[in-house]
Design a binder for these strands. Structure first.
Lengths: 220, 220
DNA sequence: CTAAAACCTGACCAACTGGACAGCTTTCAG
DNA sequence: CTGAAAGCTGTCCAGTTGGTCAGGTTTTAG
């Protein structure tokens, strides 16, 4: 249900037209799903937004569910590519700073993707359960191991690695998911955060998290 | 559109029956809205879940939007009552610890409420814009002032107070909104976090945030 | 006991939902 | 130049949506 998206068409090398339209549709679908969630999204609205007749979307993606899964896959794929891998051999201060900066850049540049993922999780992750079941636990243990190595080497405070990771995720993702509330609190017009806002946020997070983890903080 | 919910019925002291049924309906609606968002929620499903005919819900709440607004109001009201107010005169270590503990308890005991709020914000807060416009900026400035006072007294590191607050919100709310992902990462069966998990999370957050803010940390 | 107010609901409706499909046009390899 | 594959879409459909309403029953105040 999750991995194969192209089971209903020959695809393969595929045509240029196909790529173009799939791209347009996925972009429109991202916006719609981010605004209304899976159930609330309307194929008609996605079609209008993409500038294509509704039937065309069904031609490419077969069903609403398959389109949604394609959008989710597109997001997870992008995140996987962009996210910095933490290196146990490296200096935690450097590694964590790079990670936080990368996640903040993601929050800034792809807030919609983050929101779709967020809404999916909040709704109980009905379409990501297999994703979480598959090798997620093992993957996550690999992530925590890095922190355990750092702690064993005395490079950072002894903490529960899992919750340190959750803090990294939550504090950065917040700037994508809750941008609306943040811009209201900061009194930003038109609900648009500027680059300077993200930079201040990053600086604050770096200070608190690096220092809080007992990691050497860079001279500010 | 937001404040008055009872414009279509005499209400006032109202009957006992009314209270009971409104309560049942709001509970069912919370579950449905948390799972599907506003647009994705179905009045029929809410009715079934509440054990009442659909028309009965319209009798009490008039429309889907009014029901949703009632649910949101119910949530905001509860949060307002339960949330600890930070005191500029107090010790930041004590105050922040109390606040973090209070928010974590909220995340643990009312995750659904948190999720409805989260989905609403992620969707661009279409029905909370007035709430954010009304006196939100001023209220928020009052909150940041507390941190500025602490900083001026040298009780904590100089940081952007707004982003410190965002960190408090995000890191705690994450345990309600993303419980699904967290339980998957921790390998918890049936997606249920236990009290011990929340306690470990709270300890980790307290350590990092208090230390990271340059506030005296309690002996652990 | 009475009557008015509150409560309740089955049946109905127009609008919209995701999806199916026949038959059209365009593209492109051989 | 040709024919098959790919691309495209107007039209239809059954099911669901939020919402209405007439007419019923129960509750309750006087």
């Amino acid at each position: 249900m999750f991995i194969e998206l192209d089971s209903h068409t020959p695809n393969g090398s595929a045509g240029r037209i196909r790529k173009d339209n799939e791209c347009k549709i996925i972009a429109a679908a991202e916006a719609e799903f981010a605004r209304h969630g899976y159930k609330g999204a309307s194929m008609q609205s996605i079609a209008d937004h993409a500038g294509l007749p509704k039937a065309n979307i069904h031609y490419y993606f077969g069903s609403k569910l398959r389109l949604y899964v394609a959008v989710l896959a597109h997001i997870l794929d992008m995140w996987d590519k962009l996210l910095v891998k933490l290196d146990a051999a490296g200096d935690p201060a450097v590694e964590l700073e790079a990670y936080i900066r990368a996640k903040m850049r993601l929050a800034q540049e792809h807030p919609q993707a983050s929101r779709i993922f967020g809404i999916e999780i909040m709704s109980g992750a009905p379409y990501l359960q297999e994703y979480f079941r598959k090798g997620y636990l093992e993957w996550f243990k690999g992530r925590t191991a890095v922190f355990e190595a750092w702690m064993a080497q005395g490079k950072m405070d002894r903490l529960d690695p899992a919750h340190v990771i959750f803090l990294l995720w939550s504090s950065t993702q917040h700037y994508a998911d809750f941008a609306c509330q943040i811009s209201a609190a900061l009194g930003k017009p038109g609900q648009t955060l500027q680059a300077a806002d993200y930079e201040r946020a990053t600086q604050t997070l770096l200070h608190i998290i690096l220092k809080g983890c007992g990691v050497r903080q860079k001279p500010t």
